[in-house]
């Protein structure tokens, strides 16, 4: 039928895995914001949720690394991480293979992407789902952008992917929701973990909320690496959502939480014509 919901949120594994090391009041505030997003998502009455996440070497490696990939399975499983380490129990997550196929056919009119009938979810998908669909009863269609192993797809191709996702969502009979997950500035999995460039984050979120395509696509990977760390490459997922939604964003929550290694972010975007 159409795209009925669009949003972005953080997916850092510490959000669920290191909750016992964080300030309780801060965590409750963040978890409340995730619950708010879950309510907004449910109110849109989606038939399926497309999750645009960043590659973390969970499913693909440098022997065969797609710039973009999409799941095409009847069901998925996760988390790939130790469930105790991540704080999320291992579970099966429903997919929708025929819907995936329909979407992929349309996307391929403009964007070449890989597809996979086998896919293990890591924190990039599981952390958001643990809040948004905690009973894992909504069919999920995962989309992966390589933000990990350079050379990475240029930002304008992440935008093109988002445009293609929107076109595809508008062509199927189902009500489609879509989220992008990732960090803005962050230096995860290094001794710098917890370093956050709040000013950079807020400027990126300003560009994202106003859906300023030119400003969002003007970042270079060199400057992003310098100012926002290798984790900043994940802005690709947020940019895809802006391209798909074509609306105006509204920031629901932003707060740097060093023990979670990221400026925790929750925002949604109106669906433009």
């Amino acid at each position: 039928m159409s795209l009925v919901f669009a949003g972005i949120c953080s997916h850092a594994p510490g959000i669920t895995g290191r909750v016992n090391m964080a300030d309780r009041a801060v965590t409750e505030e963040l978890y409340g914001a995730y619950r708010g997003m879950a309510d907004d998502l449910a109110a849109s009455k989606p038939d399926a949720l497309i999750v645009v996440a960043a590659e973390h070497f969970a499913n693909f490696f440098m022997n065969n690394m797609p710039a973009f990939a999409m799941g095409m399975a009847e069901s998925y499983e996760g988390p790939i991480e130790d469930p105790k380490w991540l704080g999320i129990p291992h579970t099966a997550v429903p997919g929708n293979a025929p819907l995936s196929q329909q979407l992929i056919r349309e996307i391929m009119q403009t964007v070449d992407l890989a597809y996979a009938e086998e896919w293990k979810f890591d924190h990039g998908v599981m952390v958001p789902l643990s809040f948004l669909t905690p009973r894992y009863n909504l069919p999920i269609i995962p989309v992966n952008i390589n933000c990990q192993g350079p050379p990475l797809a240029p930002l304008h191709r992440a935008w093109a992917l988002g445009e293609a996702l929107r076109r595809a969502a508008d062509q199927v009979p189902q009500r489609i929701a879509m989220i992008g997950t990732g960090g803005i500035s962050h230096w995860p999995a290094t001794p710098d973990s917890g370093k956050i460039n709040e000013q950079w984050d807020r400027e990126f979120l300003r560009r994202w909320q106003s859906n300023d395509k030119g400003a969002m696509l003007s970042y270079t990977d060199e400057a992003t690496y310098r100012d926002a760390g290798q984790g900043g490459f994940e802005i690709r997922t947020f940019i895809s959502i802006a391209a798909a939604a074509r609306g105006q964003g509204r920031l629901q929550y932003y707060r740097p939480i060093p023990i979670f290694s990221v400026g925790c972010t929750i925002a949604n975007m109106s669906i433009g014509n």
Partner: peptide, 16 residues
């Protein structure tokens, strides 16, 4: 790779 350390050896970024 792209995971270089940019902080000081004696720095505890997130108190760890």
């Amino acid at each position: 790779g792209v995971y270089a350390m940019t902080t000081r050896l004696d720095e505890k970024v997130a108190d760890v």
